[in-house]
Design a protein around this nucleic acid. Sequence first.
DNA 1: CGCCCATCTTGACCGTCGGTCCAGTTTATT
DNA 2: AATAAACTGGACCGACGGTCAAGATGGGCG
Lengths: 215, 215
Amino acid sequence: MAEGRRERADAARNRQAILRATEELLAQYRPEQVSMERVAAAAGVGKGTVFHRFGSRLGLMVALMQERAYALDEAVTNGPPPLGPGAPPEERLMAFLDAVAELVGRNKGLLAALGHAATASRPEWREQGAQAGQVEDCAQGSPDDHPVYRFWHGHTSTLIAERRPELDAELLAHILLGSLQSEPVLRLLERGESARLAASLRVMAAAMLAAPAPS
Amino acid sequence: MAEGRRERADAARNRQAILRATEELLAQYRPEQVSMERVAAAAGVGKGTVFHRFGSRLGLMVALMQERAYALDEAVTNGPPPLGPGAPPEERLMAFLDAVAELVGRNKGLLAALGHAATASRPEWREQGAQAGQVEDCAQGSPDDHPVYRFWHGHTSTLIAERRPELDAELLAHILLGSLQSEPVLRLLERGESARLAASLRVMAAAMLAAPAPS
DNA sequence: CGCCCATCTTGACCGTCGGTCCAGTTTATT
DNA sequence: AATAAACTGGACCGACGGTCAAGATGGGCG
């Protein structure tokens, strides 16, 4: 947000207007109904401005998500236990899963929009993609691996590895967190049952961290 | 496929051509590069024919998915243990997760395309959706709750409930299976590591079915 | 205060998409 | 062979994400 030169005052005002308009629309309509034009109109700016500020639909959604997730990131990094450092891994994991479930529950629309945006194609890529074929990634960074998910995954994965180093913590963390993006779970969240989700997440995580080898 | 009247011979031929073209394209290009026009062209038919046969992009993908998943469904319902009926729940679950991971590994492109298609909006809905606001589902059936997923979820959920009736089997099954649709996992599959996925899925499931109350 | 240029804004424009439509063709039945 | 139903294809539609060049604006500096 503050790299290189400062942002002009009107630009900053518009950035806020766009962000606020986006979250309002996302709270009211399904993500695929929230087009960039609509966002622009709701924010009272031109479409070009939105793209100038955020680069793309994905950029907009990621920016909004980062804003929403900032408090949790802070609490995990510098806050008091059990969320912050100090508590034993399993307690931190439980607290974190609870917090994530709650955060996601308050931002279902945004989550869905992120998934939707990550899917979208860039017109310029069509040609070369058609040539190269196969699924190899263009850049080494993956499209929807936005910073928020990266942080969540890193944290979860670290906690798992701390307690059960013999497991595939990386992948298990993906499985645990990946469920947050799945349609059926999102639908559950829309019915307000984020507590139910948190409970089941805890069950899975607790069982996973429990006995070293049940067989 | 065979409800009401029979399908005309040329229609059946075209249906096959479209299905085959779709899977070929899906194996070669990223799902968002596989447009309906391209499918039609590759199949040697008009675009209208594709829509007449399958209704929509989602319809096409679901049809293809059903075809691919048929063998597994059969094995689970009527096959020999441990996949089919007869073995204890945990063994059936493990076998099923292995089979699903392998199936998904062989069809990553299709899975991704399904997710992509489920997201797409129907033009007719735009208006009413904009009025009604909020996220309430249009029909009671959910968009991407295609029969294949429904079956997988039902099976998984039943097996969990059989062994651990006190748990929220429904939701746990969604979490387990939902991971198959998540971007990071799909990327793993693209690198051919479906065995690694299966292993971690087993770990999670086994831990979950193990001790009644670890606390 | 007023100048000036980097920064910002704008909306017409582009190519593509999923989906519709119907005039014309093909198939199966009698 | 005739006919009704099923099927076909591609022009067409509205909307989308994204681009761009020309004009407006803000703010640091003389």
